[in-house]
Amino acid sequence: MLQRAGETELAGKPVAKPLVANIQRQHQALRRQQALLLEQRHARIAADEGLATAVERYRELKKPGPGDQG
């Protein structure tokens, strides 16, 4: 679509409104998807950090203490 619009402009003709609207819609959808991906990446980082903290705490609690036999 962008190529078609570009070729139309290079030919000195106006780009059809439906084509412009379609390009804008797809661009907006792409921006929403990029924002969602960024949110998911941040959530993944937070989850990984939480898991690392939980594993560290678990390992700390599993260590034998003084007087424990193991």
Rank of each mutant, 00 (worst) to 15 (best):
P18A: 15
P14Q: 13
G12K: 15
K17Y: 01
Q3C: 09
E49G: 05
A52E: 01
E49I: 07
A43S: 08
E7I: 09
T8S: 10
Q33E: 12
G50E: 06
E49V: 09
G70R: 06
Q24N: 05
L51T: 07
L38S: 09
A54E: 14
Q33S: 07
L61K: 08
V55F: 12
L36C: 11
P14Y: 04
Q69F: 07
R4D: 13
Q3E: 12
R44V: 01
Q69N: 10
A29F: 00
E49W: 06
L10F: 02
L51A: 08
Q24M: 02
A46F: 04
A16P: 03
E39C: 10
A16H: 08
P64S: 14
R44C: 04
R44I: 00
A43Q: 07
A11S: 13
G50I: 03
V15N: 03
V20G: 09
P14F: 07
E56K: 11
Y58L: 15
E56I: 08
R57Q: 14
R31N: 06
E60I: 05
G70L: 11
R59I: 03
D48I: 08
K63I: 01
V20P: 11
L30T: 02
R59W: 03
L38W: 00
H27L: 11
R57F: 13
P18Q: 14
A54P: 04
A11E: 09
K62Y: 06
E56H: 12
Q40K: 13
L51N: 01
L2Y: 11
R41Y: 02
H27F: 09
R31Y: 02
H27M: 06
I23V: 14
T8L: 15
A21Y: 02
L51C: 05
E39R: 06
I23Q: 01
